[in-house]
Design a binder for these strands. Structure first.
Length: 279
DNA sequence: GTCCAGGTTTAGC
DNA sequence: GCTAAACATGGA
């Protein structure tokens, strides 16, 4: 087991994991065990330090994008002079956008549509339990995220049995499309707009999920997913005149450019926490 | 019982 | 092209 220590100033375990970009992590000791593909690490923030423990540290250096300087991103967020964005950046400056596995991100966000985060986590956990391979980390066993081949090997009734509801058909069809030769890696070189068009051809992927896959799975920071939460943010804290989600997304990308993805995540996380407090 | 959640698909204009 | 209904599930 190897260990790395970072300043927690722009790397908070809690904010990075709880901001809705990842569904596979569980509280453990003072921190969390985090899973990606067939790998695991332990992540904790205590005081001014964030610690990563893993047998695959190089993988998780990349995963947590540890070389990226987020102070600049945070400063640019504040420089826009929007009250909501500034407050969100202040609260969420510990968020790091993860560089997640493309395929895992794709299937995870098919599950996410018209669903809530606790339920998404549960479904993905049952998915891995049933179809993943067993591995060990810190004396405990866990399951890997199943590859498309494994996902395509089961039918709709399996997905319904673990709670996917009507999304079961989307999982089956898209898993088959991928095993039949749709190469996710071949999209790496496309500009973001072309990448999204290709993603939209997959069943169960509409504009919002395509933006999430583009951002979390292809690291296109000029993506701005607009869901029910971001609609509220737009209405309450910005122009508010557009009604179409895609138009709202374009509006933000135009303003924020390559910072759009980070700013979106700051604001999404802040909005959700704000609502939670009032209850 | 109704409403909601990191929306997409399909049918009908 | 656009709009509106249908779509499972579980927690509030």
């Amino acid at each position: 087991m190897q260990k790395r220590i970072f300043s927690s100033a722009f790397f908070s375990a809690k904010d990075t994991l709880d901001c809705g970009q990842i569904f596979r992590y569980v509280p453990f000791n003072a921190g969390y065990t985090v899973f990606s593909q067939d790998k695991a690490c332990y992540l904790e923030t205590v005081g001014g330090e964030t610690v990563v423990l893993s047998d695959n540290l190089e993988y998780f250096d990349e995963f947590f994008d540890v070389k990226r300087d987020l102070e600049k991103t945070y400063e640019r967020a504040k420089s826009f002079g929007n009250a909501f964005l500034s407050a969100a950046a202040e609260k969420g400056k510990g968020i790091r956008l993860l560089r997640q596995d493309t395929e895992e991100t794709l299937f995870s966000f098919i599950v996410s549509q018209n669903n809530n985060i606790p339920r998404i986590k549960g479904i993905i956990e049952r998915l891995c339990d049933a179809l993943g391979e067993e591995r060990e980390f810190m004396g405990k066993t866990f399951k890997t995220f199943p590859k498309a081949e494994a996902l395509a090997s089961v039918g709709e009734d399996f997905y319904k049995s673990i709670g996917l509801g009507y999304r079961a058909a989307y999982m089956v069809e898209t898993a088959k499309t991928i095993t039949d030769g749709f190469d996710l890696r071949s999209l790496d070189s496309l500009p973001t707009s072309e990448l999204k068009k290709k993603l939209l051809s997959l069943k169960g992927i509409g504009p919002k999920v395509a933006d999430c896959v583009s951002l979390f799975g292809y690291y296109r920071y000029d993506s701005f997913p607009v869901d029910v939460w971001m609609e509220k943010v737009y209405r309450e804290g910005f122009d508010g005149r557009l009604t179409d989600r895609k138009a709202v997304s374009d509006y933000f990308v135009k303003q924020f450019g390559g910072d759009a993805g980070y700013f979106q995540q700051y604001m999404f996380h802040y909005k959700r926490n704000e609502e939670a407090k009032q209850k």
